[in-house]
Nucleic acid binder design. Structure first.
Length: 193
DNA sequence: CAAGAGATCATCT
DNA sequence: GATGATCTCTTGA
């Protein structure tokens, strides 16, 4: 069952937690890739110094101020794309970063793109995930309630969930301490334990 | 195995 | 002109 827009309108922390155990589906001319989400992070509102939108409303962050259920994709460090899903109401900037998935379908395609044999290394990190799923800035602003990139509930409850501070946001002062990273306990496909 | 450096560019000052 | 919501490879024990 495809997740509808109302799912993404909930509070960002709820969305981030509930996304664990859901499936990410990416349709592409080369084939379809599917992965189970095992790790997410929440970026919430104009106050959150780790959230790009805390710098104000700009051309780049505009998408986060828009309606929920859209993809926010951007490039970091000149190499890696990050995939976020916009949440909450219009004019409130918030999003959930998808940090890692467990490869389920289209694994050969992911191997070709990633040039690695190891299944646990195909999508265990935000940059790797985007590479394996062929996600780049062309998808920025795409509606994830559409048919190319979307999420599904396949009836699995994310059992044991663990929270930790977010990764790579040391510059965010007190905000870096917020336990807004969510991951499935003991899952071998997360980016780091 | 842990730690460190380098890669490379869109975006904002 | 500085700086990342990262990854991979190299180094040294």
């Amino acid at each position: 069952m495809k997740l509808s827009r109302s799912f993404y309108q909930q509070s960002t922390l709820d969305v981030a937690r509930q996304l664990l155990g859901k499936y990410l589906i990416r349709k592409h001319p080369d084939g379809t890739t599917v992965g189970k989400i095992v790790e997410t992070e929440a970026y919430v509102g104009p106050e959150d110094k780790a959230c790009h939108a805390s710098r104000g409303r700009t051309a780049r962050t505009e998408i986060m101020f828009g309606p929920s259920g859209h993809a926010y994709v951007y490039l970091v460090y000149g190499f890696h794309h990050m995939l976020n899903i916009v949440t909450e109401a219009v004019d409130f900037p918030a999003a959930v970063l998808i940090r890692a998935v467990e490869p389920v379908q289209g694994i050969e395609l992911m191997r070709t793109r990633r040039k690695t044999e190891q299944r646990h290394n195909l999508a265990s990190g935000p940059g790797k995930l985007c590479h394996a799923f062929a996600i780049d800035r062309a998808l920025n602003g795409d509606d994830v309630c559409g048919g190319t990139l979307y999420l599904e509930d396949r009836g699995e409850a994310a059992s044991k969930v663990v929270t930790t501070p977010r990764i790579g946001v040391d510059y965010a002062g007190p905000w870096k301490l917020k336990p807004w990273r969510f991951l499935i306990k003991d899952n071998e496909f997360v980016s780091k334990p």
